[in-house]
Amino acid sequence: MEHFALWLGGFLTLGIFSFLYKDNPWYKLTEAIYVGISAGYFVVVYFWDNFYSKFWVGVFPHKRLNEAGELVAGVEPDYWLIIGGVLGLLMLMRLLPKVGWISRWPLAFIVGATAGLWLINYFASFVMVQIQNTVTPLFGADYNASLFVIVGNIVVAVGTFTGLIYFFFSKEHKGAFGSAARVGIFFLMITFGASFGYTVMSRMSLLIGRIDFLFGDWLGMIR
């Protein structure tokens, strides 16, 4: 069975790699198996993790019996979960064309609640903390910072300020404002370049992992 799994894994891995040449039946077969199995897997996972473990067990907790078979105090039912259950039920109204419009209510609830919940989180993390951390003495406390630190502080200050100018939409990027915005986009592009290189290197490790599987686990050529 273990050999069968290895051969199947090798066959499917090469099937996905065959896409590098061009679309072909082998890739189509692998794609269909991958999509089908993963979709089915997630249906099962969502049912047991969400519907059963969170909703059902939350509303109807398991009864606990002692050694004598008597009922002992257990976990209290969480009736708030019924609200989520009702919203989920309303989503299924989509299956009934006449009342399908009701499915917009839970959707509106999710979108509205998400926007409200994230507002303060985003505002605090990406605005206030960012400003607070940018406000640092350029030459270090008591003017005793090394040249390296001073350059770093100036890059952070200028990069943040000009970056904000680039993302200011109420003014045309012309003249001095435009020049500052151009400096801002330079900073962004340099950052993206560094990020690109870093991420490509981390993706190489994924490729190495697959090659290790093919030539090591499967073919036994790497030991």
């Binding site: 400003i131 940018t134 640092t136 030459f139 003017y143 993302f167 200011f168 939409f169």
Partner: peptide, 25 residues
């Protein structure tokens, strides 16, 4: 446009903050 007001406040705060913390020190 309201978000741009926020960005203008942020830019002003950063500029004033960096100048005052550097000169103040």
């Amino acid at each position: 446009k309201g978000q741009d007001v926020g960005k203008a406040i942020a830019m002003a705060a950063i500029l004033i903050g960096i100048l005052t913390v550097t000169i103040g020190d």
